[in-house]
């Protein structure tokens, strides 16, 4: 289903969900939950947005049934830890590559995905100051290294 323009802000979170459907369904579930909550705040009035949100909700309910036994979905505190660990794992992988001077597409994507997952953590409540800083740094690094590689420069 085409993403309504009003939901552009969550398009990358939804893409991350798709990419994790098989790899880590818990991550996929919370990315969609984040998109759902954010989407409802952005626009739940126009028919195209409501239609999209209803489909997304159907998908979330199905996923929740399928993941029924998984504590990461049935218990908020476990889910929070799962997403935070995953976000930090991606962040640390990219950060290690960065510090080793190894710049490539995968590490850019890891920085960017980790920043999206720090957004997703907000479904569990307010982000810690540390996570806010990680998100800011990861997003900036992803943009900076991407620009350097595109222009043939070596990131500093």
């Amino acid at each position: 289903m085409a993403l309504p323009l009003q939901f552009k802000a969550v398009q990358h979170h939804l893409r991350t969900a798709q990419e994790h459907d098989k790899r880590d369904p818990v991550v996929a579930y919370y990315c969609r939950l984040y998109a759902m909550q954010t989407g409802m705040k952005l626009d739940s009035k126009t028919p195209e947005c409501r239609k999209f949100l209803v489909k997304l909700m159907d998908q979330l309910e199905t996923m929740k049934k399928e993941l029924g036994d998984n504590e990461s979905v049935s218990q908020e505190v476990v889910g929070n830890a799962h997403i935070e660990n995953y976000a930090l794992k991606m962040f640390l992988y990219a950060d290690n590559e960065d510090r080793a001077g190894s710049f490539h597409k995968n590490m850019i994507k890891s920085f960017y995905t980790s920043s999206l997952l720090f957004d997703v953590l907000s479904v569990f409540g307010e982000l810690s100051e540390e996570n806010i800083q990680h998100r800011k740094y990861a997003r900036w690094k992803a943009t900076y290294i991407h620009t350097c590689l595109k222009e043939g420069e070596t990131p500093v």
């Binding site: 909550q37 409802m40 739940s44 409501r50 909700m57 979905v73 049935s74 889910g79």
Partner: peptide, 27 residues
Amino acid sequence: SGSVGSSVAAAEQDELSSRLAKLRDQM
């Protein structure tokens, strides 16, 4: 018909909110 349309929209929004609450309730 405008008010019927907006009533339907409001009902659908309420339903979405309650489904979301239910989804999160068991977390």
